[in-house]
Simulated scan of single mutants.
Amino acid sequence: MTWYVVRRLLISAVVLLGISAVVFLMLNLVSDSPGRVVLGQRASPEAVADFNTRHGFDRPVLAQYVSYLGQLAHADLGRSYKLNENVATLLGQNAGRSAMLSAAGLAVALVIAVPLGILQAVRRNSLADRLLTAASYVLYATPSFLLGLILIAVFSQALPVFPAEASQSHSPWVVFTDPRAMALPVITLAAASVAVFAQYQRSSALDQLGQDYIRVARAKGLPERLILLRHLLRNACLPLVTLVGTLIPTLLAGNLIVESLFNYPGLGLLFLNSLQREDYPVLLAYTLIGGVLTVAGNFVADLVVAAADRRIELRK
């Protein structure tokens, strides 16, 4: 198990290095003169050139990238062009709220999707299975911003149950302290994941229902409820663990849409504002966070699955 963990860590490090290189080069191509972005279009060419020279932007791209890696090694994400603040500080001020929103959306999605997937598998090809499958496809195909607008129109305007704007509290625990204001953002974020998780859980459960251990349990006369909870659920959820790990960055992207739609102060709203201001250090840091979450999610999922099924470790 130790060698498996070390090997996965090495692979993760290489992937992160590749992500940082690609993102850095892409943003460098987009902005060939940070001095012009920072000083504005009215700045003289001399002032722009002096700014680029003082900050090392006139050096070759490779040299700039090596310097950036050195900054990352010291946990230095640079400074915001427009806000003149440390990027790490800006991210730290907003990360807690975005993380809590993502966690709430993921929890709601799993609580709904896992029982639905099991139900569909047990009642395969029934009317309920077909209706739930159709609803999942429709929900998955609906863009998050459109779903959010529909929820606002129905539950905030037609039926004034929830406010149209998310809570503006700076507390990361706002999901618990002001659940009414956070209901629509959480539901919007969780909706697409419910559709994916439910269908994935259904397929996994169908595969497990055909295994010998399920037939043996039924032959022994065990109650169906006990078979589902004690035998089926654990094995059917293992593939879902891997899927959850890969979808963590999708939640981050969903945060971007949801936070913008409901004006929720988090990383997504910070990213959109930075995009409008062409604040590339913030954009680079946000993209790197998405890469780190992708790699970390896959790494943790692999460890959980390997711990639950030792055959995974042996095959790899």
Score class of each variant (00 low, 15 high):
residue 4 Y to F: 14
residue 6 V to K: 10
residue 7 R to Y: 01
residue 8 R to G: 06
residue 10 L to K: 02
residue 12 S to K: 07
residue 13 A to M: 11
residue 13 A to Q: 04
residue 19 I to S: 05
residue 24 F to I: 01
residue 25 L to K: 04
residue 29 L to C: 08
residue 33 S to H: 14
residue 35 G to R: 11
residue 35 G to A: 12
residue 37 V to K: 08
residue 40 G to H: 03
residue 42 R to E: 15
residue 44 S to P: 07
residue 44 S to W: 03
residue 51 F to H: 03
residue 52 N to Y: 10
residue 58 D to L: 05
residue 61 V to W: 11
residue 61 V to M: 13
residue 65 Y to Q: 10
residue 67 S to G: 04
residue 68 Y to A: 00
residue 70 G to V: 00
residue 71 Q to G: 15
residue 74 H to G: 00
residue 76 D to Q: 02
residue 77 L to E: 03
residue 77 L to K: 05
residue 85 E to C: 03
residue 88 A to Y: 04
residue 93 Q to E: 14
residue 96 G to S: 01
residue 100 M to H: 01
residue 100 M to A: 12
residue 107 A to M: 14
residue 109 A to H: 13
residue 110 L to H: 08
residue 111 V to Y: 07
residue 115 P to H: 05
residue 117 G to R: 12
residue 118 I to D: 09
residue 122 V to Q: 10
residue 123 R to Q: 07
residue 124 R to W: 07
residue 124 R to A: 11
residue 128 A to L: 15
residue 138 V to E: 00
residue 140 Y to C: 00
residue 141 A to H: 02
residue 142 T to P: 03
residue 143 P to Y: 15
residue 144 S to I: 09
residue 150 I to D: 00
residue 152 I to A: 00
residue 152 I to T: 01
residue 154 V to P: 01
residue 155 F to Y: 00
residue 159 L to E: 00
residue 161 V to E: 02
residue 166 A to E: 04
residue 166 A to L: 06
residue 167 S to G: 07
residue 171 S to M: 03
residue 180 R to Q: 15
residue 190 A to L: 12
residue 199 Q to K: 13
residue 199 Q to D: 08
residue 200 Y to L: 14
residue 201 Q to V: 05
residue 206 L to H: 06
residue 207 D to T: 10
residue 213 Y to K: 04
residue 213 Y to D: 05
residue 214 I to C: 02
residue 217 A to N: 03
residue 218 R to P: 00
residue 219 A to S: 15
residue 220 K to P: 02
residue 222 L to H: 10
residue 225 R to G: 09
residue 226 L to Q: 15
residue 231 H to A: 09
residue 234 R to T: 07
residue 235 N to P: 08
residue 237 C to E: 04
residue 240 L to Q: 12
residue 240 L to W: 04
residue 240 L to A: 06
residue 243 L to A: 11
residue 244 V to D: 05
residue 247 L to A: 14
residue 249 P to V: 10
residue 250 T to Q: 12
residue 252 L to F: 12
residue 256 L to K: 08
residue 256 L to S: 14
residue 258 V to A: 09
residue 260 S to L: 08
residue 264 Y to P: 02
residue 267 L to W: 11
residue 274 S to M: 03
residue 277 R to L: 12
residue 286 Y to R: 09
residue 286 Y to L: 14
residue 287 T to Q: 12
residue 290 G to Q: 15
residue 291 G to K: 10
residue 294 T to I: 02
residue 300 V to T: 08
residue 302 D to C: 09
residue 305 V to H: 09
residue 311 R to V: 05
residue 312 I to G: 00
